[in-house]
C-alpha cells in the first residue's frame, strides 16, 4: 500500500510540476491564479496521502481540512482584489 500512496504522491507532484508552466508562463494573471488554485487543491490531497504514508492520518487530515478552507479564502482574496482593479478601470495586467 505505501508504494501505491507514494506513487500517487509522485504522480500528483508531477501534475504540480506541469501546472508550474502555467504559473510561470501565464500569460494572464488569472491563468496563474487558476494554476495556483489547482496547486492548492492538489496539496490538500497530497497532505492526506502523506499522512497515510506517515501513519498519522488523523493529524494530517486536520491540516488538510484547514487547507481546504484556507485555499478557498486565498483564491477569493486574489479575485476580490483583481475585480477591484477591474472596477476601478485600472489595467488588469501590469506586465507588458
Amino acid at each position: 500500500m505505501p508504494v501505491a500512496l507514494a506513487a500517487a504522491v509522485v504522480v500528483i507532484l508531477l501534475g504540480v510540476l506541469v501546472l508550474l508552466r502555467r504559473v510561470i508562463v501565464g500569460p494572464r494573471l488569472l491563468d496563474r491564479v487558476v494554476a495556483v488554485n489547482v496547486i492548492g487543491t492538489k496539496t490538500i490531497i497530497l497532505l492526506a496521502l502523506v499522512g497515510y504514508l506517515a501513519g498519522r492520518p488523523g493529524f494530517f487530515l486536520d491540516i488538510a481540512l484547514s487547507y481546504a478552507l484556507i485555499n478557498f479564502v486565498g483564491t477569493i482574496a486574489v479575485l476580490r482584489y483583481y475585480e477591484g482593479r477591474v472596477r476601478r478601470g485600472e489595467p488588469v495586467e501590469e506586465e507588458a
Binding site: 478552507l69 484556507i70 478557498f72 479564502v73 477569493i76 482574496a77 476580490r80
Partner: peptide, 9 residues
C-alpha cells in the same frame, strides 16, 4: 479567517 472571508466576499 471566517471574518476575513465574510469581509472579502
Amino acid at each position: 479567517s471566517s471574518f476575513v472571508l465574510l469581509g472579502l466576499a
